[in-house]
Amino acid sequence: MSYQEKRNLVNLISAVLITTVYSVLMSQRYPQSDPYSREVFQFWGAFFLILIPVSIIARIVIYIIFHILNYIATREEDAPITDERDDLIELRAGRFSRYVFWIGVMLAMGSLVMELSPATMFIILICTGVVSEIVSEVSQIYFYRRGF
């Protein structure tokens, strides 16, 4: 398995892990009040705002650990350079990821039209974020394996 594939696999696992752990921890703080109350919307606002720095920090830590483990396993100090093929693969995977994300956004908006609770809409948005990232990373692994 190449360095790029390993990196994509780590990104995939960390995306799922970080969001799952964070969601489980935050769900314990979910306000037990009217689903349309100010507290509920404040909760979701804080959920997304805190997720961003938490995700960035966790990813940096995971990436450092991955780099150390990869060095121990392969004795390669530096990560391979990123070249035109990497950029093309990332662009194509990003396109698939965006399609999935927009489908998710449409579903989230559809949930509001169907008069489901705002919590459902926010949960769909969170799942969409994770699924689009999974699609991006899996697509990249696929392109690295199949060729591009």
Binding site: S2, D83, R85, D86, G147, F148
Partner: peptide
């Protein structure tokens, strides 16, 4: 040529058509 070894492997196998510059 300042690319990764994986790119050379992919070109050699015919799995990747490089840019004109490369």
């Amino acid at each position: 040529v300042e690319v990764s070894r994986q790119t050379i492997i992919a070109i050699e196998k015919g799995n990747y058509a490089p840019s004109l510059e490369l």
